[in-house]
Simulated scan of single mutants.
Amino acid sequence: MTTAPMILDARACARRGRPSARQRGVAFVLVLWVIAMLAILLGSFSLVARTESLQSRHLFDSTQARYAAEAGLNLAVFELRKSDPVQQWIGDGRPYVFNYGDAKIEVRITDDSGKIDINAADAIRLTSLFMTRGLELDQAEAIAAAVIDWRDPDDDAQPNGAEISEYKGAGLSYGPKNAPFDTVSELQQVLGMNYALFSALEPSLTIYSGRTDPNAAYASTPEALMATGCEREQAEQLIQLRQGMSTAEIAAAGLTGCDGTSPIVAGGGGLTYSVKSRATLLNGASTILDATIRMGGVSVAGRPFVILRWRDGETS
Results as ranks from 00 to 15, higher is better:
I288F: 01
E249T: 11
T315N: 09
Q237N: 15
A200Y: 01
R11M: 15
R125I: 15
I293H: 07
I164A: 12
S46W: 07
A301E: 13
A301H: 06
W310V: 07
V306L: 12
I148E: 09
R294G: 08
L54I: 04
I35T: 14
T221S: 12
T228W: 01
P176L: 00
L47H: 10
M226Q: 15
I7F: 03
I239F: 09
L59D: 05
A179W: 04
A224K: 03
A162W: 02
R211E: 07
K82D: 02
A142Q: 13
A266W: 11
Q243D: 07
S56D: 04
L201C: 07
R151N: 07
L187F: 01
A121L: 13
L197G: 05
Q188A: 14
V275S: 03
A216C: 00
D84V: 06
Y195G: 00
W310M: 06
E136D: 14
L42Q: 09
T315L: 10
T292K: 08
Q55R: 11
G175L: 03
G302I: 05
F60L: 04
Q158W: 08
Y174C: 01
A4C: 00
S20R: 06
H58C: 00
V184D: 02
E314Q: 13
D102Q: 15
D156L: 11
A179I: 01
S83L: 11
E106L: 12
I105V: 14
E233P: 00
K177C: 00
I35F: 13
A142P: 08
G169C: 01
